[in-house]
Design a protein around this nucleic acid. Structure first.
Lengths: 140, 140
DNA sequence: TAAAAATACTCCATAGGTATTTTAT
DNA sequence: ATAAAATACCTATGGAGTATTTTTA
């Protein structure tokens, strides 16, 4: 079972027409029919009733449509989220400082920086150093 | 982005070792590396830190792992559900009757049947006939 | 008979395999 | 020196296209 097949199924289920669905998927009608058929075969479940005049969802198809839509939406959100993280718009920034500057200039600069950040929380950290490893992920 | 690639990524993220992950996916190591790399390229996000001695998740990879696991689980449940429906273990049964038998033998038989059904609800239906079309889906 | 899905075939993109190289400890 | 990931190359499965046939309203 591949995402492509799920998208094809959703297209057919929404259009109720293999030709239009194929156009929407930017492929020809025969391969679309073939992929949807394969999906049904792999599941062992008939998702669509087809005649040359009408395409309709079976009860199983209707349920599967809802679930697959949800799944694809979730997946899209997951992608958006990590891409957003990678661009530095989201994520966790850990900052540590010690020595004299910890009591004066650095905290002030840090507070000014926080004012420019959209969402995020500042958590005071006990001990000498906040954390090892890759904490900061600010772009220059 | 294909489901296969997501499964491969999950395997690597869980094993933190391309060789073992490849075994788990029943493929060789090079194509596994290739597919994971392609996934990262398509997303535009680095999901894993690799050296020849250590594989580790990036913060983005850790988030993506959770989300993808959820997504694949949901999808699996959707498949289970429609397969269960197709076997007649789940779904909606609509029963209609009218005429003299509606007041005697049929309701009694119907009640006896309900006693054998695991989950489901009986809803009285107004009007002469319950519903047109494919309502009943009992196997013989 | 006309509109639409299925079937038959062809082609090529790519998933996956094998052999080898690179890299970091 | 070794274990493990990356690279290079090859093969073959199958995804998608075109042409055609079948079906039903």
């Amino acid at each position: 079972m591949e995402i492509r097949q799920l998208r094809y199924f959703v297209a057919v289920a929404e259009e109720l027409h293999f030709g239009r669905a194929a156009t929407r998927c930017h492929i020809a009608q025969p391969p679309l029919s073939q992929q949807v058929r394969r999906l049904e075969e792999e599941l062992g479940v008939k998702l669509l009733e087809r005649t040359s005049r009408r395409v309709a969802l079976t009860p199983e198809g209707a349920v599967f449509l809802r679930e697959v839509r949800d799944t694809l939406d979730r997946l899209g959100q997951a992608v958006d989220r990590v891409q957003s993280m990678a661009r530095g718009e989201e994520g966790t920034l850990r900052v540590g400082f010690f020595g004299p500057s910890a009591l004066s200039s650095l905290p002030r600069a840090f507070r000014r920086f926080l004012g420019q950040v959209h969402h995020g929380a500042a958590v005071p950290v006990a001990g000498r150093q906040a954390r090892r490893g890759r904490g900061s992920r600010l772009r220059p």
